[in-house]
Design a binder for these strands. Structure first.
Ligand SMILES: [Zn+2]
Ligand SMILES: [Zn+2]
Ligand SMILES: [Zn+2]
Ligand SMILES: [Zn+2]
Lengths: 170, 170
DNA sequence: GGCATACATGATATGGAATAACATGACAAG
DNA sequence: CTTGTCATGTTATTCCATATCATGTATGCC
């Protein structure tokens, strides 16, 4: 794994997921970015953690914790729930992976590097997940929060619907 | 075996939108609206369903399915999971109750009557939940969806943070 | 009335998500 | 070498959710 893969970060900031792309490169570069960021920030991207991130990057879909666990077992890692949840906690806390609350499942971040407040589009037919940016404090919710004095720390924004591919097929 | 761990939120701080209000009346009127709407639309607000709605209206907090189940048992109804989940399905499908994905729990709708796309503010300290309106297709997410041809059918918008009461106490 | 249909309820069993609690191993300071 | 920290591993348990089959109950038609 040369860390020389350049930040070929999908430049259409919005949406990896519903678009064809060079997936090999996509996975490799995301892993490279993760390794580089961990080095910079003194985080330890251990084998289990790296493996989980790699699994999630391979799919552009959300995987449940037990699907992840199955693959960890196959790869020779521990196979008890905490093994997966701890790796996921690390990856989520550090912004490499997001949890999709609607699905109780996890997806690799499509815009690693910068901290951001993600929004997701989830296809209910094929389970594809695309990540966009959300503007949490702006809009109706932000206004309502300011009006009552609620301090927003984090937002969950998830849209459920049908992706372009599945719409086309129908 | 009961799964109730509630730290007894001070009773009279019951709040809709984090504001004090006449809670007796709030519950009664919401039940009346539900009954009237069910009559109009030919829906059957049966005893279990009514009881679950009433429970959720009493709290302005989200209750987990098993907390609901415990109370159903106490009230003499069936105590197996499907009993609660079926009642909840009915109430959610018809807009009387919303599911809070972040908590895997349920809360009574604060704006019954009109169909709407809710947004929630969840206090991570006291677990209070307030409901606001969201503008799903407007804003950054709507734009991203239109850009790729994703058809939004439903959105989950949940903000986590600290409510005015808890901010004040700190 | 007798009967078909739809719908609501009930109970059993199982699967999937998440965490608590405890033990072990690796490793870097001191 | 000892100590503290962090990561991993295992066991056990709890909570969330659904599939399945059985039973009851109302309604409308014959
Ligand atoms: Zn990719
Ligand atoms: Zn699709
Ligand atoms: Zn509502
Ligand atoms: Zn609070």
């Amino acid at each position: 794994m040369t860390s020389e893969t350049t930040p070929a970060l999908a430049e259409d900031t919005a949406l990896v997921g519903f678009q064809e792309h060079d997936h090999e490169n996509c996975v490799d570069s995301a892993l490279a970015i993760a390794e580089s960021r961990c080095k910079d920030e003194g985080l330890r991207l251990t084998p289990v953690r790296r493996k989980v991130l790699e699994m999630l990057l391979q799919e552009h879909r959300a995987l449940g914790a037990y699907a992840i666990l199955d693959r960890l077992r196959e790869a020779g890692f521990g196979s008890q729930p905490p093994v997966a949840y701890r790796a996921l906690d690390f990856l989520v806390d550090n912004g490499f992976v997001h949890k999709i609350e609607r699905l109780n499942a996890f997806v690799a971040c499509a815009h690693p590097g910068a901290t951001h407040s993600p929004a997701f589009m989830i296809c209910r037919k094929c389970d594809a997940v695309a990540e966009a940016h959300s503007a949490p404090a702006k809009g109706a919710l932000g206004a309502a929060a300011r009006a009552v004095g609620f301090e927003i720390e984090r937002t969950v924004v998830e849209a459920e619907g049908v992706c372009p591919d599945c719409t086309e097929k129908a």
